[in-house]
Amino acid sequence: MLFPVFSSPHLPAQNNVSRVMGEVLLALLPGILCATWFFGWGVLVNIVIAATTCVAAEAAVLALRGRAVRATLADRSALLTGVLLALCLPPLAPWWIPVIGSLFAIVIAKQLYGGLGYNPFNPAMIGYVVLLISYPRELTLWIPPTGIEAQHLNLNLSQTLALIFTNSLPAETTIDALTMPTPLDATKTAFGLGQTLHEIKASPLFGHFGGVGWEWINLSFLIGGLYLLARRVISWHIPAGLLGGLFLIALVFYGSDTDAFPSPLFHLFSGAAMLGAFFIATDPVSAATTPRGRLLFGAGIGVIAYVIRTWGGYPDGIAFGVLLMNMAAPTIDYYTKPRVFGQSK
C-alpha cells in the first residue's frame, strides 16, 4: 500500500492567523462599547467606514497583485487595521478622514511592502499619523464625553450620519459648541498658559484619575488586553514595557514637581495608552520579536509617548512612539538574542 509523504511534525497546527486576529477584535469590544457610550454613534460610524475601506482596498490590491483575494481576506488583518485606525479618530470626523487614513494604511504601508508579514511599520499608525500631519484641524475636533452635562450635546444616529457625510449640523448648533479638547490636549494648553496641575484638575474634563470618559475607555481596553494575555494571543512583554516605561518616566517628573507634571496614573489612563499598549504596539509584524527586545520596544514607546505628550507639538505620542520604535525593531532584535540552550552565558 502506498501513502503520501510529508515532513514532520504531522500533528495539525493548533492555531491560525484568522483566530489570532479574531481574538484581538473580540478583545476590542469592551473598549469599543465604552467609547461609543461616551462619544456617541460617531465611533461606530468611523469603524464601519474605516473597516470597509481597509477590506476593499486590500481586496483591490490583492486582485492587482494576482493573489488569492478571498483566502487572504480571511486572515482578518485588514479588518483589524481598519478598526484600530477608527478607534484613534475623533468621533465626528468627516467621512473622508477614515477613508484616506485606511487607504494609506493598507495600500501604502502594508500592501506595497508585500502585504501581511512584510510591512516594517504598523499600518494603522501610518494611516493615523498621515492624517494627523495632513489634517490637524479635523484630527483635533473631539467632542465632550457623556458625563460632562453642561456642554454635552447628544447627537442621534441620523444627526451623526448627516454631520459625517454631508457636514450639516442640527439647527442652532455650531461646530465650536460641539467640540471640546481632550484631557491631554487641555492639559498641554493649560500648562502652556502657566496654570498649575491643581488648577487644571478643577476643570470639568477631569475625572477620578484621568479624563472623564477617557479613564473608563482606557480601563475597558485594559480589560480587553488582559483577556488577550490570558488567551496567550499576545505576550506580556510589550504592554509591560510600554506601560512600565510610561509610568516610570511620568513618576520621575511627577515626583520632581507634582504641580508641573500630571501623575503617572493620569498618563496611563489618558489618550491611547491602553489601546496602544495592548492592541497597537503588540502588532507582531512590525514589533521587536525577542522577549527582551519586546520589553525594550514597549519601554521605548512609553518614553517617546511621554516626551511628546509633555514637550512635543502633539497632545498624544503613542502613534509616533510606535512608528519610531518600529524603525528600531530590527536593531533591538539583533542585540537581544536570547542565550541558546547549552551555549555559554
Binding site: 492567523v17 519586546r294 538574542k337 547549552g342
Partner: peptide, 29 residues
C-alpha cells in the same frame, strides 16, 4: 487524524515559536 498540511501564510513574527522552543532559539528568525 493527522490531516495533510494546510497552505502556509506569511510569518507574522508573533513569536509563539519562541515561547515553546526547548533549545531557546528564535525559530521565526
Amino acid at each position: 487524524e493527522l490531516p495533510l498540511p494546510q497552505a502556509p501564510l506569511p510569518c507574522i513574527r508573533c513569536g509563539a515559536c519562541v515561547d515553546v522552543c526547548p533549545a531557546k532559539l528564535l525559530p521565526q528568525q
